[in-house]
Design a binder for these strands. Structure first.
Lengths: 335, 335
DNA sequence: TTGTTTCGCGAAAACGTTTACGTAATTAAA
DNA sequence: TTTAATTACGTAAACGTTTTCGCGAAACAA
């Protein structure tokens, strides 16, 4: 590697003190414009960039944030990351990524490892395997943290979410409008507020329209993909629903496959609707009616909030930011 | 925030020097087991974790790598990141993500900003907008770097790629076997070795089977999605190909849409085949025949190579690791 | 016994910054 | 004129580690 070019080197070449160089680089009012220009010019010429470790150590700022999410290979989260990254670049921040794979222990391990000054703040969408409010109640006291989409309620922290209840209600009504009376629910995120809100929206819509809910019509998400497929096949065979309302993207493939293997025509014999950010939803066979969350904007908003906190700016009004999802009607609900 | 617990604090509580504590924490042979245990126990009790900035500054190791890619919201890259993350976790490394959005200037800016000791090494899949070998020839001298999928040739660096030429040849043959004689090529990554290899495979397969290639049958990828759609529509109308061979995932949606709007039946009137890692390929209407790259494994392999370099282990044989893609035949090529 | 190793630990420097404080020179106020 | 304030810069400490070097005590060899 090349010879180190640091602040000391700049100071020597310019015959000034390292303090002056440091202040000049940071555009301090203590330094004359003339000196600043000399420093800036030489810094550019020698391709100087400050050593981050030294800077972090002394100033206790890292210009780095962490994103802790279940998985990057998911349309919602990868879009969120794009939104986060866009804002992070604007602020000159670096972005660390950690995947929990829905494992709460991994989640704790990662966040704990970030408390020693590795990052200035955390953006997280929590694991669905458990709802451990206690841990996060402690965590938010120790580091600036913003939740997005998958949040913990009743904590002193900013949360960016979507209108899960309302959109699920609206989607259920759409199915009812299309003539469905036995709407099965593919239940994901059951431990989390988002999952509960979606389910409530579904239940309330049924009730409002005089339809009975039934435990038989509910399939809970399981990590094992094969098991999910079997559950849906069994559901179709035994209870013959006329619609599948999936609360998470992960149910789409097994749902379509199960219908195909049962020989059920979509949307004639059964309608399908799902929360999803798949860009190929309109190309599916048949095109899938989706509830599309503004994933990119959620990432952006969450990041903006975090940087407001990091810059000690007052958060406008409150801690809950709620964005609107959109119901995109396509062939799979056929009306 | 809580009171700082650092090495000094541990030393005081145990009445030993900070040097001893540091060595004990790093399991140095200089320290007796008895003392080590005292240190380890107290460290655990006080939840001590070393300050990364101080550690980095002194040791010049960051336990961090950077991943520089065009975009995370892409199935191939998000899967690659998963593979990279898995290996990084095994080694206890942290992962920084940078998106270039195919902008070569952003790419340079990011990588340059990583040269001051922010990371120990870089994994990258380069932008397709340009082929600037010179820059990277310099870069690889300054920091451990591994290319994956989108690489620069003829550099002294490890490259993890796939069998682009062979699989494109094979895919073209598949189309020919299905009776196609006017196979259009949707050309992506034309500046990069991967794009060129795919195109060569296509051309050579045509030639071997006595089919003529034609510039009219080639559509080059453009950033503007609308423009791509128009180009394909024009292609269909004017030159009536009986197959579309797409070299990148981004052409799938416009290709399907164009066929639909032109009223062409897939696969009866036109067949479609594409490089893609879409999990929903089998759900498309009709199910899409794909060339699926082992994205996850590419990420894993690339990361493994980087860590071998970082740990000064000899790289087994050579610098080119080539993984196999797989042609998954489905309805869109209908035979 | 004496001499030589080995073992276990501590003192102190170093990594490259930032920043509190001091100070000389210049300018403004009295 | 004297005094106070301002400007522009330097000295040195500090951030929390790692690591070189040295040293006394114990263990071993002669």
């Amino acid at each position: 590697m090349a010879e180190a070019v640091n602040i000391k080197r700049l100071a020597q070449e310019l015959n000034i003190s390292i303090a002056t160089v440091s202040k000049a680089l940071n555009d301090s009012y203590e330094i004359s414009l003339k000196t600043k220009n000399r420093v800036w010019d030489l810094a550019k010429e020698l391709n100087y960039t400050p050593n981050p470790a030294a800077s972090n150590l002394r100033s206790n700022k890292t210009k780095t944030i962490a994103v802790v999410i279940p998985c990057v290979a998911n349309n919602f989260f990868s879009l969120s990351i794009m939104g986060i990254e866009e804002i992070a670049r604007q602020y000159g921040y670096h972005v660390l990524i950690y995947q929990t794979h829905e494992n709460i222990e991994a989640e704790k391990a990662f966040t704990n490892s970030l408390l020693n000054g590795r990052v200035d703040g955390i953006l997280t969408s929590v694991s669905s395997s458990e709802y451990n409010s206690e841990y996060y109640a402690n965590l938010v006291k120790k580091i600036p943290l913003v939740f997005f989409d998958r949040v913990y309620q009743d904590l002193d922290a900013v949360k960016v979410t979507t209108d899960d209840y309302e959109i699920a209600y609206q989607a259920t009504e759409h199915l009812i409008d299309c003539g469905c009376t036995k709407i099965a629910y593919l239940f994901g995120l059951e431990n989390l507020p988002a999952g509960k809100a979606r389910f409530s929206g579904y239940l309330d819509a049924l009730r409002t329209h005089g339809l009975a809910a039934s435990d038989h019509l509910i399939v809970k998400y399981h990590e094992d993909e094969e098991f999910n497929l079997q559950q849906i096949e069994e559901l179709l065979e035994k209870y013959k629903p006329d619609a599948l309302f999936s609360s998470i993207e992960e149910f789409i493939i097994p749902a379509y496959c199960a219908c195909r293997e049962s020989g059920l025509q979509i949307p004639d014999e059964i309608k399908i609707l799902s929360f999803s950010n798949l860009s190929t939803a309109k190309l599916l066979s048949p095109a899938l009616t989706t509830i599309s969350q503004p994933a990119f904007e959620i990432g952006r908003e969450a990041a903006k909030c975090l940087f407001k906190i990091l810059n000690n700016k007052q958060l406008d009004d409150e801690q809950n930011i709620i964005l609107k999802s959109v119901l995109v009607k396509r062939e799979s609900t056929g009306c």
